[in-house]
Design a protein around this nucleic acid. Sequence first.
DNA 1: GGTGATCGTGCGTAGA
Length: 747
Amino acid sequence: MNSRASGSSGCASRAFDRLHPTVQRWVYRRGWRTLHEIQELAVEPILNGDDCIVAAPTAGGKTEAAFLPVCSAIASAPTPSVQALYISPLKALINDQYRRMEELAEDLGLPVFPWHGDVAGSQKQRFLAKPGGILMITPESLESLFVNRGTRMKGLFSGLSYVLVDELHAFIGMERGKQLQCLMHRLELVIRRRVSRIGLSATLGDMGLAAEFLRPGGDREAVRLIVSTSAVSDIVAQLRGYRVSEPEGQPPAALTSRPGQACSSQGGSLAPVVEHLFEVLRGTHNLVFANSRSRVEAYADALRHLSDATRVPNEFVPHHGSLSKEIREDAEVRLQDTSRPCTAVCTSTLELGIDVGDIECVAQIGPPPSVAAVRQRLGRSGRRGGRPAQLRMYVQEPEITPETHPQDMIRAQLVQSVAMLRLLGRGWCELPRPNQLHLSTLVQQVLSMIAQFGGVRAGDAYGALCRSGPFAAVSPTIFADLLRCLGEKDMITQSVDEALLLGSAGERIVNHYSFYSAFLTPEEFRIECKGVMLGSLPVDTCLEPGGYLIFAGRRWVVDEVDDKHKVVYVQPAEGGVIPHFGGTGGVVADQVREEMRLVYEVEHEYPYLDEGARDLLDEGRREYREIGLAGRGVLPWGASVLLFPWVGDRALNTLTMLLAGRSLCACRAGVGIEVQRCNVAKAARHLHALAEAGLQDPLEVARRVKNKRTEKYHWCLSDELLTADYASSSVDAAGAARAVENLMASL
DNA sequence: GGTGATCGTGCGTAGA
C-alpha cells in the first residue's frame, strides 16, 4: 500500500473522525495523509449497518475501506462470538488478508481466525474454544460448520454484526454463488436477525444485479453502492493479426513431435506469434493469457524452445489450475521477483486474487472468453505509477483455400476481438443469467439443513430455502418433486412425525468431506517425477508407458501408469505431445454478436490494428459482402443453408434445437447455424412457421436435449427436474424468437 | 475412420 500523496494536514475528515481512535492511530502509523475516496465514502454507510457494495479498481484500497469502519464498530462492542465474518473464494486470499489485518486487529484487541482446508486443526480448536472477533473463511468451510457444528452455530454467531464477501463478482451467477447466498441466509435464520452484508468487487457489469445478489429478494435501493470515481488509467492496445496454414482452433493434441525434434508448433502455426512474444516481452514482467491449459503448455514449450535455440535464459513459465501447488507458487514468486524478468503464460488462474506484482503488459492470444475477463485481466497491468495499462492481442486466422468454410472466410475471430474491444471501451461487460433454478445446489442445501438440525420438516425447508430464501424461483411443486427424487435415491427418508431425515445414501454423502463444495471436479491422474508431484490430468487422457508428454512447460516420457492409485510416473525426455484437458465451450453474449455485425457493416478504421489485422479485417468485410451477408442472414451454401442471425450462443443453440425439432439437419457452425440438405425456400418456410408459432416453451426445447447432467447432484434428479434446470440455465426462447425475426427480416 | 470443444474454485473428524 502506497502512502497517499496529499498536501492536506493529517487525515482529518468527517469520515476519519468517526473511526475508532485506535484505528485512527493505525492509519497514522502507516503514513497515510488522507483516506482514499472509496474509504471516505464507505465509513458512514458501514457504521450505519447498511448493506453495501464497495467497488473500486484492483489495489484501490477496498479491503481497508470495509475493514476500517467494520473494526471500528466491533471494537467498541466486544462479544464472546464472531462479530465479523469475512468470506473469500480463495484460500490464498484469506492468508493474504489475514496478514494485512493482523496488526490492526491486535491493536484493537480483536482476535482474527483464518479457517480453510489448509488451516491446522489446533487453530480451529482454538477458535471453537474461544470464539470472537473476525472469522475469515471459505464458503465450503462455512458449510462444514453448519454440517458438523449445527447445534453450536447460534452460539458461535449470536453477536454477528457484519458479513463481508470478497471478490463478489467471482460468485455471481455460479453454483457457488447460490451456495453462498444460502449460507448467509441460514446464518440470519439461526440467529434470528438481519446482519449487514458488504460485498467487495473490482469488476461489476450491473450494480443493480449485484445488489440483488447480495440481498436476494430484498429492496435493491436499500443496498448502498459505494463506487470509486477515480479514473481508470488509459489503455494502450494493439491487435495483431496472423495468417496460418492450420486454423488456430486446431486441437492442440495435433501438435506433436518425436524425440530430438522441436514440436511442430515451432515451425507451424504458433511460430510468428511466439517469435513476437519472445521479442517484445523478454526483459520485463508480463502475463500472457492463452485461453486454455493445452495452449498454455503449447506456448510455454515453444517459448522455452526458442530461448534454448537462441542460447538465452528462459523467462517464460506456465501457470494453470492443473499444475501442482509448488510449481504454481514458484511461478508466482518469479513473477514478483523484480531482480529478474519473467513472463507467465497462464489461464484465468492469474486473473484474480494473488498479487502478481508490477506487470508491464498483458497479452491475450485468441479472442478473449468474455469482455468481463479482458477487463479483469487488464486490471493486472499498469497498476503503479499511473502508467496506462498495456494490452497486446494476437489473432490467428487460417489461409483461405477453395475448401474454406464461409465461417472462416469472414474472419470471425478477428471481428469478435474488435467487437469486444469496442464494448470494453464503452464500459460494457457480460451479465450473469438471472432466475436459474440451480437444483443441484438446492439438493446440497436440503441435505445440509437436515444435517444441521438432525432433521427438518419439508415445509420449514421450503420456507427457509425458497419462500424466504435465495431459491425464490423454485415452486412448491418443484420442491416436492425434488424431495420425492431424493427419497427414491435413499438420500432422505421421512420419520413418523413427518420430519425429513438423511437416508443411508445421504448419510454417506454428507459425512464425506467432498460434500461441502457445490461444484463438481472430474477424476484425475496425478503426474509424478521422482517423487515430485507435477500436477494432474483428467483420467480419460490416453497415457501409455513410453508415450511422450508436454507438461508444466517441460517434456516427459511416461514410465509407468498406476491405474489403481491414479498416478502417472514420468521422466524428462526430448519429445512431447500437448495433452488434452477436456472442458466444454464458453458462452458468447448477444451484445458481442450484435457488435460483430456492426464491425462488418460500418466501415470504421481501428488505429490499434497492425497491418496483418487490418488486412484480415478488410478481407473479412469483403467476404461478408461477397458471400451476400450484407443485410442478409440466410445463405445457400452447396447443398446446405447457412443462417447468421447475429445473436449470442444460448439463442443460437436454442434456435438450432428448434430447427432440429422440425426434422431439419441443423448444427452449430461457428457464429452461425448450418442446415444440411436444405435450400433457402425450405429454410424460409420453417422460419416462417417458427415465427407463426410464437414464443416456444423452454421446457419443450430442453426436453429434447440428451446430456443434461452437468452439475454435482444432477444424478439425483428426475428427467423432468433436469429438464426444468436445463431450461432455466441454457435455453433462451426469447433470444431464439429474436433470431428468427432477424432472419425473416433479411429474407 | 474421424471430427468439434473454457477456466476456476473447495474439503471433517476420529482414531492410532
